[in-house]
Simulated scan of single mutants.
Amino acid sequence: MSSNPGQLSSLRGITRYVTGHDSAGKAIVQTENPAEWSAYENNSMAFAVAYSTSEFPADLNHDNDFKTHEDIKASGKLGLVNPGGTVCRFVDFAPKGPPLMHRTQSLDYGIVLEGEIEMTLDSGEKRLLKRGDMAVQRATMHAWHNPSETEWTRMVFVLQECKPLVIGGEELKEDLSQAKTSEFQSRR
């Protein structure tokens, strides 16, 4: 089992390395720490936020991006999407965990790091993604399901807020209505 705080899966732990600069302008490793996980949906998935930004383009001067990330993380108010910025998040999916149909108001890059995951769209289309495969979610209603009987799946997601999406004159909004736990919904 991992030494990462709160990690549920038996997958290898994650260490985050954040680089910066010394006073002479040379690159350094500014911080190094294990990922901190939060469990959701009756322990069927866990999230670890690697980093977030709160503006675009990011302001790295005086470590503004790093300070803002640490402040928003400490506030407990970071949602799935960070308005005006980005979120990089690891997600571990339990074997046979229930799929959670949802939509975020974002453009998401989802990359399978370990295992396999089934992507289901609200149209009924399904695809099995394997290690190294990537999905680009464009504010679509979708669900993830780990089909394995025994093995956890790990993905990394980078989410960027998008402008409201309008299809057929209707604005498609974030939808987390199928989330079971109040903690998951309160972090929107």
Rank of each mutant, 00 (worst) to 15 (best):
P5F: 03
P5G: 05
G6F: 00
G6E: 02
G6S: 07
Q7M: 06
L8C: 02
L8A: 05
S9H: 01
S10P: 00
L11M: 09
L11K: 00
R12H: 11
R16Y: 11
Y17P: 03
V18A: 07
V18E: 06
T19Q: 10
S23L: 13
A24M: 08
A24P: 01
G25P: 11
A27W: 02
V29M: 12
Q30D: 14
Q30P: 04
Q30I: 01
E32T: 14
N33R: 13
N33A: 10
E36K: 13
E36Q: 12
E36P: 00
W37T: 02
W37G: 01
A39L: 04
A39I: 04
Y40R: 09
N43S: 13
N43I: 01
S44Y: 06
M45N: 05
A48L: 07
A50D: 08
S52E: 03
T53G: 14
T53S: 14
T53D: 02
S54C: 08
F56P: 00
P57N: 12
A58M: 01
L60I: 09
L60E: 14
N61E: 14
N61G: 13
H62E: 15
D63R: 11
N64C: 01
D65R: 10
F66C: 03
F66V: 11
T68A: 15
T68C: 04
H69A: 12
H69Q: 08
H69D: 12
E70I: 11
I72N: 12
I72K: 13
K73Q: 09
A74C: 05
A74V: 01
S75P: 09
K77I: 03
G79N: 10
G79I: 04
L80T: 10
V81C: 05
P83R: 05
T86K: 01
T86S: 15
C88H: 03
F90D: 00
F90Q: 04
V91I: 15
V91N: 01
V91F: 02
F93N: 00
G97H: 05
P99F: 09
P99Q: 06
P99G: 03
L100Q: 14
L100F: 12
M101A: 12
M101H: 07
H102I: 04
H102L: 04
H102Y: 07
T104W: 05
Q105P: 00
Q105A: 12
S106A: 15
L107P: 02
E114K: 14
E114M: 09
G115K: 10
T120M: 13
T120D: 04
G124A: 12
E125G: 03
R127F: 08
L128P: 05
L129C: 11
R131K: 15
A135H: 08
A135G: 00
V136I: 15
Q137E: 08
T140Q: 04
M141E: 04
H142Q: 13
N146D: 05
P147I: 10
E149A: 15
E151T: 10
W152R: 06
T153F: 02
R154Y: 03
R154T: 03
V158W: 02
Q160Y: 01
C162R: 09
C162M: 13
L165W: 06
L165G: 03
L165S: 09
L165Y: 08
E170A: 10
E170V: 14
L172F: 11
D175A: 07
D175S: 04
K180R: 11
Q185L: 14
Q185K: 15
S186D: 12
R188D: 10
